[in-house]
Amino acid sequence: MPWSRPQMAERLAREFQDGWIVNLGVGMPTLITDVDMGEKEITFHAENGVIGFGPVAAEGHEDIHLVDASRRFVTLPPGAAIVDHADSFALIRSGRIDVTVLGTYEAAANRDFANWKVKGAKGGVIGGAMDLAACAKNVFLMMEHRTRDGTSRMLAECSLPVTARGRVNRVITELGLFEPTGAAFKVLDVAPGVTIDDIRAATAAPVEA
């Protein structure tokens, strides 16, 4: 059985180290705030300058002035802080973010990824992804292994315009957890019941078991 999205979030979060400052992209990565981090102390940073935010607010307890970068009404536990957008991205560019977890259209074995522009579009959806991808100490990606029509999103090289080159450290899909090594996707973990052959069949790049 492939991993569910919450299981993907839980498995990927096991790669975090104690004390890390974590930035979460829009979409699937936001599930990571629901993961129980156990003994690990994890601080969430949002592009809009909210540092150390907590879980999504319970209904009726939302604060109209307080959202994370995915527009979720979050909370401010003790120890949180607010900075402006320039300082927030200064923290990113200066390497203070230990990991950014981003959703993506494509991940490549050569450690590139593409998540800002779809085929034929004139505009793009960059947000903070290029700053984060270029500057975070680690770049983790979360995505479905294939598109709805069955085309692999796990490629040797991206077919879409890249967000950053050579920056990806981990990719998690419903089938497994991978490390792009340059030439291949190295399998670090496999979802229950999924075989290496299943992964090879779904991947358009060499797979290193």
Partner: peptide, 26 residues
């Protein structure tokens, strides 16, 4: 987004331009 913020910050700080790693190779 960080380039947008820094371009505004630079304008407000009297700095005409700057170098950033964001967007390199894209």
């Amino acid at each position: 987004q960080g380039t947008l913020a820094e371009r505004l910050r630079a304008a407000g700080a009297g700095v005409p331009a700057f170098y950033t790693p964001a967007g390199v190779g894209t």
